[in-house]
Design a binder for these strands. Sequence first.
DNA 1: CCCGGTTGCGCAAGCGTTTGCGTTCGGATT
DNA 2: AATCCGAACGCAAACGCTTGCGCAACCGGG
Lengths: 339, 339
Amino acid sequence: MTVSITDVAEATGVSASTVSRALRGRPGVSEEMRARIVAAAADLGYTASRSASSLASGRTYTIGVVVPYVGRWFFGTVLDAAEKVFSAAGYDVLLYNLGSPEARKRFFTKLPIRKRVDAVLSLLIPDPEEAAALRSLDVPLATTVGGARPGFTVVGIDDRGGAESAVRHLVNLGHRRVGMISGASEPLHWTTPLDRRQGYLDVLADAGIEPDPALEADGGYTVEGGERAMTELLALRHPPTAVFAQSDEMAMGALRSLRRHRLRVPEDVSVVGFDDHELSEVVGLTTVAQPVAAQGREAARLLLARLDEPDAGPPRPVEMPIRFVLRETTAPPHSGRQR
Amino acid sequence: MTVSITDVAEATGVSASTVSRALRGRPGVSEEMRARIVAAAADLGYTASRSASSLASGRTYTIGVVVPYVGRWFFGTVLDAAEKVFSAAGYDVLLYNLGSPEARKRFFTKLPIRKRVDAVLSLLIPDPEEAAALRSLDVPLATTVGGARPGFTVVGIDDRGGAESAVRHLVNLGHRRVGMISGASEPLHWTTPLDRRQGYLDVLADAGIEPDPALEADGGYTVEGGERAMTELLALRHPPTAVFAQSDEMAMGALRSLRRHRLRVPEDVSVVGFDDHELSEVVGLTTVAQPVAAQGREAARLLLARLDEPDAGPPRPVEMPIRFVLRETTAPPHSGRQR
DNA sequence: CCCGGTTGCGCAAGCGTTTGCGTTCGGATT
DNA sequence: AATCCGAACGCAAACGCTTGCGCAACCGGG
């Protein structure tokens, strides 16, 4: 058997209660005794059973993190940063990867997280029912993706403003036909695509450009989707001279399509993305940078703060700064040879 | 208070034992009673407390996954795939992200995982001491990264053979000065860099090419490192005409460096990578593809199998297939204009 | 020298399950 | 009709901690 609290109690000649108090830094133990207990525990290689301690105390020292796709850069990066904050504070992380509809359904009906976590960080936007299920857990909730629900601490960015800066850049370069590669909002109940689209429309209106629905294509926030979308746009009678992709992944897909069509970037077509993916610098993509890891860190911190200060209500939404990054995929229209 | 097992026991007029047996599919309960209990449980929204049940049963229905960097594509992809298998089987995943030395040290000394998991999937190579710590948990262990330790179920690929196919491709194209961008094995106790290097050396020997130590540069398995390494190689009196990067990330860094030096790929320099990163197709990188997600799935499956069949010893190592992928970053030397 | 207040520790009652064993009961076997 | 037996269920003892409470021993102040 593995060593239990009574083993270290016997080894030091005290009761289990004292061992528990000593190891957890509770008052009521003399410093001398505490030192002896700590030494004995280390000596025996004792670690408290989490099951037992959380059963007894009600605290699990575990945070649930639910994400749509761990494999995607954005979510992986947020998770990475958040996990570091949690584990540094002594919390473990329970990961739920809800990419497939089945996994998602299973999660929200069985709610395996119930009674297992002290707080939840959700990187996916729950629909109203799902949000209610999470609230029923009665623990602090947070999210780093747009589309806040009541009860959630939200850390995010100004999606609309970011999109505006990207599109304004294109317009300022002289582009009049600027396309957009976006992603559907449904079924993710996700406001980011909507906000970024609004920013796009704002700038066009501002510049007196009539928006053309044909210039909007759906890229589903994936590389392949971006490629398909760009190909669609190129098939138009009057293709755009510049494209705003709502994510860098889609922008990269667009670059690929352009390369296949033997079009030069930025001479023939300009492309600007959004997110500042880790590989965007590699391909020289002009984009709007958002502090992804910082958002994960911040959300984690706010969650921990609420655990320490349970009476304080949910904090105000936090908006992190964004930054336009000029690289090499944008230029005035038809700056090179004509095609 | 949240609903407990006694609540559903009272609601059905039976004892808690019967409820437990009914809900867990144990024998000793009539089908009629089981149905009533299941209905009542669903009605009340009852979920067993994991803490209590694992305290009583010793099973935690949780798998520990330890990774060096969740944010990196390779690990994120493996994790994604493995988590799906685990959660479909009813297991939760406890994630430990051990990127920093402090986090790593904290994990292996406190071993917060003890008594919390039924098995461990390690995506980092433990040093001998760390491996011993993991074995002391007395649960099935698995890994998907080269450098197996005794006691671990290992799922991997033929790194040496993969490297050989990449380098052979370059040599067959006519390259004689082929450089390599690698990564240090220490302090990760990682045999992958060594194996891939051996493949490189094998092919050179085979082709009667004298290996030149100056043509090997350290890229640390990161994009930036790859860029630095390529820059070093270009500074050589006789730079290589082709480069084998031990990972696609480093290859992309190399591409970036080449672009900055106004060298064309593949006309001036050929580049081949390893891994088939999700964005490699986007940049047209010739590489060696390994089934990353499949490795995660397979490792997870093997772990679950060992949980069901505890007496069976650790299974033989599994080697997954690899595949050379020809794209657009390789060509015969000096195939374009000279520089 | 007596007494109220600390300080340091042990006792024991949980926390919500699981599970070995005991009991009851209806039906099949002699 | 007496017996045996398995099926269905209840009892109660863990599992390994946490924590409110009680009780000595000790402190300094009047």
